[in-house]
Simulated assay, not measured.
Amino acid sequence: MTPASSAKPDRRPPYQHAADELRREIKAGRYKPGDQLPPYRELQERFGVANMTARAALNVLRDEGLIYTIQGRGSFVADYDGKGVDYTPPAWYLGNRAEPGGSEADELVIGKGKPGSANAAGPALTEMLTALRDEIRALSAEHQELRREVEALKKAQQDSPS
């Protein structure tokens, strides 16, 4: 392994570093579907970035379908089968990695275009998956809103004099 000073500098923006680390943790099972991710403030402290940078990192994961956000509640890991997200880093990133060959975690993150993956099936399947992912997000947000309404009704019923 080479010392850090002799490694090529990684030119990726900070939000991409944060998104990559969170993606690895989701893929490794640290955060399971339905788990809430840390709030922006914790991500800021953990990665040493600004609020907007933490938001941008979560936006990347949301665009990939790994997470969904409910306004006022936070960001949550989406249900996925581990095959639906096929992230391939840009070529300039792969050329600047400090460790040649990568790690097992990198292999989980980097899509290989295997038969049956979204890359192999073509754009029509990708569009359909994106539409389904958006519909699931909308239904999940609606589900959360209904749960809040039920909780509010229960509380109102408990608070009202009998």
Rank of each mutant, 00 (worst) to 15 (best):
P3K: 14
K8Q: 12
P9Q: 09
D10H: 02
R12Y: 06
P14Q: 04
Y15T: 03
A19Q: 01
E21R: 11
R23W: 05
R23L: 15
R24T: 08
I26E: 05
K27T: 08
A28N: 08
Q36F: 05
L37P: 02
Y40W: 06
L43I: 02
Q44N: 06
Q44I: 01
F47K: 01
F47E: 01
A54Y: 00
R55P: 00
R55I: 08
A57R: 02
L58R: 01
L58V: 08
L58T: 01
D63M: 08
E64Q: 11
E64R: 09
E64G: 10
G65T: 06
L66R: 05
G72E: 00
R73E: 11
G74K: 07
F76V: 02
F76I: 02
D79S: 11
D79N: 12
Y80G: 13
D81T: 07
K83P: 04
K83C: 10
G84N: 06
G84C: 03
Y87R: 15
T88M: 10
P90H: 07
A91S: 08
Y93W: 13
N96G: 06
R97I: 09
A98D: 07
E99W: 10
G102D: 04
S103L: 05
E107R: 14
K112R: 13
G113D: 05
G113K: 10
P115T: 05
G116A: 06
G116W: 04
S117V: 00
S117C: 01
N119L: 15
A121H: 09
A121K: 11
P123W: 15
A124F: 04
A124R: 09
T130S: 10
A131F: 08
R133M: 10
R133A: 06
L139K: 14
L139G: 11
L146D: 08
R147M: 11
R147N: 11
R148N: 14
R148V: 09
E149W: 10
E149L: 15
E149N: 12
V150E: 12
L153P: 02
A156F: 02
S162T: 12
